[in-house]
Nucleic acid binder design. Structure first.
Lengths: 223, 223
DNA sequence: CGGGTTCTTGACTATCTTCAACGAAAGTGG
DNA sequence: CCACTTTCGTTGAAGATAGTCAAGAACCCG
């Protein structure tokens, strides 16, 4: 998931999952902290996330890190290039995954429905990444953090009374590396949103959105 | 083209062009400044660039702009999502393009070779965009500008005596919007590289790389 | 309970942006 | 072809945003 500009595209809704008949391979389960694959690994499977949250990261030699995406249910992870993975992939919480053979990417495969599904997932991913470019390149810290919370709210927000609650299974450092910020800036920005009564921080990984429209405004820089 | 981290992937070499038999549609030509498509347009064709340079951009309501990519010969542009274009596409210099029907993306299409070619181009694009994330999110101005010059040098550098020359058909503002900087910062950074005798600026759109290894070091932050 | 990690906060700094001015280059019309 | 206008690029000074460094608080896990 590329948490970017709220409300522009239809990415925030869960993808339909693949029809049952195509699921021939047994589900994979990952415990928190377990890796699904590493950068450089040969790609044998793609995975559709059934439950849980994954984190896709890339490293620079000097240790700088970029979180490429967080994978939420419905997302496809593991698209290859030159037949190898170009990110590490770790489970942030327990996850269930539906493996899909990489051979589904061959057009000669006998299951055109799955093939098309994967192709369109790849195309959607390209579009979502383009949004993320805008976020990384052109948004302020406040806009980035607010955008991030907005998209999470849309996608996995749980109604709690009249408010919406979101779980943040990732560390502050993960959010920072996703948004191109430092953990300190992420923390300070969340504090600012809390002081402005736009969010409440129930505990370190639970945020309650008190004023969604104000949050959306912050994400657009209109404040 | 996603001008990113020099030398890691094989993106810097031109893609092989499609075999002749698949090219049934007449070449398209674009004059400098002409648009190939706009954000929101329905996607009818993809294009492989035969010559010239294109610029793919996305706009925010308030006018902020992100250059998503520069398209160079061999690149495929126009991948759809939900059947519409998600960027504007303008020719920076005269360009020749080979149109490819969007129906080649259907697996039911009778030309599996072109289908696979496009699919793999899309997968390569995903990988290249991931590099660009690292650049936008985690690199300093100097690293960004040096990376940009490095990749251009690899891809379209022309030997001039013992040096390599690169043309910059895009404006400073385009480079800035690609790298997530301001035009002033791009200009100052180029001046710095010139003062350090790493590049020479022949004229505003022609750069000569005097010390490629020093440029590479700057792109990695090892200076 | 204790040790380590993670998160928050503060003070200070650096990098990049903003604002402004100027010069060069390119386009326009007589 | 030249004068005029506009756009583009460079440079400087000042300011703001986010980063760095450091310390303490909160949380987790055995």
């Amino acid at each position: 998931m590329y948490v970017t500009i709220p409300g522009i595209h239809s990415d925030s809704t869960c993808l339909p999952t693949l029809a049952e008949p195509t699921r021939k391979i047994a589900e994979t389960r990952l415990k928190p902290g377990a890796y699904l694959f590493f950068e450089g690994d040969e790609v044998k499977w793609l995975y559709q996330i059934k439950s849980g949250v994954l984190r896709l990261t890339r490293l620079l030699e000097d240790g700088r890190r970029q979180v490429i995406a967080f994978g939420y249910p419905g997302d496809i992870v593991g698209f290859p290039s030159e037949n190898v993975h170009h990110t590490d992939c770790e489970a942030l919480i327990e996850a269930r995954l539906q493996p899909l053979s990489i051979r589904h990417l061959d057009s000669s495969e006998p299951d055109p429905e799955t093939h098309d599904y994967l192709l369109h997932a790849a195309l959607r991913e390209i579009s979502a990444m383009q949004d993320h470019f805008m976020m990384l390149g052109r948004k302020s810290a406040m806009e980035k953090v607010a955008s991030f919370l907005c998209v999470l709210t849309d996608r996995v927000g749980e109604p709690i009374g009249q408010y919406l609650q979101i779980e943040l299974p990732m560390k502050r450092a993960d959010i920072a590396d996703f948004l191109g910020l430092t953990t300190e800036t992420v923390s300070r920005t969340l504090t600012q949103l809390r002081k402005d009564d736009i969010i409440a921080i129930e505990n370190v990984q639970t945020v309650i959105v008190l004023r969604p429209s104000a949050l959306l405004n912050r994400s657009l820089g209109s404040d």
